[in-house]
Amino acid sequence: MSVATPYFDQLFAGNDDPWAFRQRWYERRKRALTLAVLTRPRYASIFEPGCANGELSAELAPRCDRLLCCDTASAAVTLAEKRLLGFAHAQVQQSRLPQQWPAGPFDLIVLSELCYYLDIDDLNTLIDRALASLADDGQLLACHWRPAIEGCPQTADEVHALLQKRLDMAHLARHHETDFLLDLWGRDGASVATREGLR
């Protein structure tokens, strides 16, 4: 069974940064690596489900023309809205995924620290909906904490293995460490050098 919304509501009760996204060097470094693996300087439309308090969202916003974020916890949505106040092209909504997946199309979908909270059926549904809403040359980024999390139905390794199997897209970037997995897939397999005419 997927982790239910009250679990996340409780995490945000009286705490505006339950994973210490702002304080921990681990989190700041991981965000920098996440942004660094993106092969384009700018995207027309980015979707970030499970945005939490909007720390990664605020760094994705300058890289796109439209940013849509969502979270299942109402407190997280409020915090992310405040974090993104300076970005008129950014929108945050409360949604439970995969059931309330937006229409798209999206040039980039960012699945950061989200998928291991879903059981296998919900994760497969999420992948189906991501594929259906991804633009013809769209990309999907996944980043997940690697150690097992109590109460989560899946691990990062299981999630990324399923994504690799199901996406049927070129693997554009891969950064794996003891602590986390970071992968980028794209329907257009062109490298950065190829895009800039260097190859």
Rank of each mutant, 00 (worst) to 15 (best):
A75Y: 07
Q154S: 12
R83A: 15
A142S: 06
G104W: 14
Y7T: 14
L97N: 03
L114W: 05
D119P: 04
R96L: 13
L67A: 07
A170C: 08
K82M: 00
L114G: 11
S2C: 12
F12D: 13
W25A: 11
D183H: 09
L123R: 13
L126Y: 06
A190Q: 13
A142N: 10
V37M: 00
R146Q: 14
S74H: 10
A80Y: 14
L35D: 15
L56T: 15
P62L: 01
A4C: 01
L118Q: 07
D17C: 08
A13G: 04
C152W: 05
V159H: 07
L85C: 04
A103G: 12
M1F: 07
R66E: 15
D183T: 09
R146Y: 08
G197C: 15
R29C: 01
A75W: 10
N124A: 13
L123N: 06
C70A: 07
Q154W: 02
K165G: 01
R174K: 01
V77S: 09
G197V: 10
L68T: 12
R31M: 05
A36W: 02
W145Y: 13
Q139T: 03
L84G: 01
I149P: 04
A173P: 05
P6K: 05
Y26Q: 09
L181W: 00
Q100I: 00
R195F: 02
L141H: 10
D188A: 09
D119Y: 07
W25D: 05
T39C: 09
A161E: 08
R174V: 01
L11E: 13
C51P: 05
L85K: 07
Q164F: 02
L85M: 10
A80M: 11
Q99C: 00
A36D: 09
S45D: 14
R199F: 03
Q93H: 02
R24Q: 14
L56H: 10
H160M: 13
A103R: 14
D9G: 10
D128K: 04
F87Q: 09
R66D: 15
V159R: 10
A58K: 15
V37E: 05
V37H: 00
R129F: 08
S74D: 06
A36M: 03
G189E: 02
K30L: 12
G197F: 09
E81K: 07
L11Q: 15
Y43R: 11
